[in-house]
Design a protein around this nucleic acid. Structure first.
Length: 281
DNA sequence: CTCCAGGTACTAA
DNA sequence: TTAGTACCTGGA
């Protein structure tokens, strides 16, 4: 495998935490899916061992996935680790990072995630990939890419019924069709580059099955927005238990509060708090 | 077997 | 605009 110097990076929680459903940890190796490649990683103290498949040695691909370029990590930390909760969270799991996940894969994954437990989501996505994703063989073992959008867009009623996605199957197919047949992906990516957050949110909310929380997850994890705090059940617990909000507080109110309080880095803060608080409870 | 986790769409007030 | 309710699956 290739190796590269690696520090201040909590690989384990970053890959296996709540921001991605694409990784497994097997015999000391992290194996994950990203676009048309399988990534294999291993950490040994301050060295990262890595390989890409089937195209080998694509260092740019791996580094682009592991590091968000525009964010100055030290500056972000100074702004985010601002109270005792964040200090505890960062102390427990230091250096969780945000990945650069691919947009369509992220959209469809989080569409599947709605009203679904994390464990179940992982199983569901793995099964879906085994059934409809491209197979990549590494050392006599089979791995599967996430299904292409056009494959899901062509899903028959029978395939939907047998996919195990439940009522979300129809949402997945509708979203895939919309992405294939309209220019909504281009619009979203263009607006993301311009950091036009509300426009992107509007476009996402227009797809059936995407509500406020899923839209925030897609923006946070698939479009590199650094200032959205997805308020799932744990996000709400954190904001009520730790930050004095009311259980009845509207999503949009919580949303704007986190944007202001976390100094423009609500996504990062959310990630630290989420992994810590969820483990703690 | 029952119970639980987990967001969104839809309808009625 | 808000409150209530149905929804689907896997796992404990």
């Amino acid at each position: 495998m290739n190796k590269i110097k690696f520090d201040n990076y909590n690989l384990h929680v970053t890959l296996l935490g709540g921001q991605s459903f694409s990784w497994i940890f097997d015999d000391g190796y992290y194996i994950g899916v990203m676009q048309n490649k399988i990534l294999k990683l291993k950490q040994d103290n301050d060295i990262l061992y890595w390989q890409t498949y089937p195209t080998q040695d694509d260092e740019k691909f791996v580094m682009n996935y592991l590091y968000r370029g525009p964010v100055h990590y030290d500056v972000m930390l100074k702004n985010v680790i601002k109270d005792n909760h964040l200090k505890s969270a960062f102390n427990k799991y230091p250096h969780i990072r945000l990945l650069n996940q691919e947009f369509e894969h992220t959209l469809l994954s989080f569409l599947i995630s709605s009203n679904n437990s994390i464990k179940s989501i992982r199983t569901r996505i793995r099964k879906l990939s085994q059934l409809y994703g491209e197979k990549i063989v590494i050392a006599d073992k089979d791995y599967y890419l996430f299904p292409k959008t056009e494959v899901l867009a062509d899903f028959s009623d029978v395939q939907i019924a047998n996919s195990g996605l439940g009522y979300r199957g129809e949402y997945v197919v509708n979203a895939a069709k919309t992405m294939i047949q309209t220019d909504v992906v281009k619009q979203i990516l263009d607006n993301s580059l311009n950091r036009n957050e509300s426009e992107v949110r509007e476009l996402l909310l227009g797809m059936k099955g995407i509500g406020e929380k899923v839209a925030d997850c897609i923006m946070a994890f698939g479009l590199e927005f650094d200032n959205v705090f997805p308020v799932d059940i744990w996000g709400r617990r954190i904001l009520t238990d730790l930050y004095g909000h009311n259980e009845k507080t509207k999503y949009s109110e919580l949303s704007s509060w986190t944007k202001a309080y976390f100094n423009g880095y609500a996504t990062w803060a959310g990630q630290y708090l989420f992994e810590w608080y969820r483990e703690k409870s």
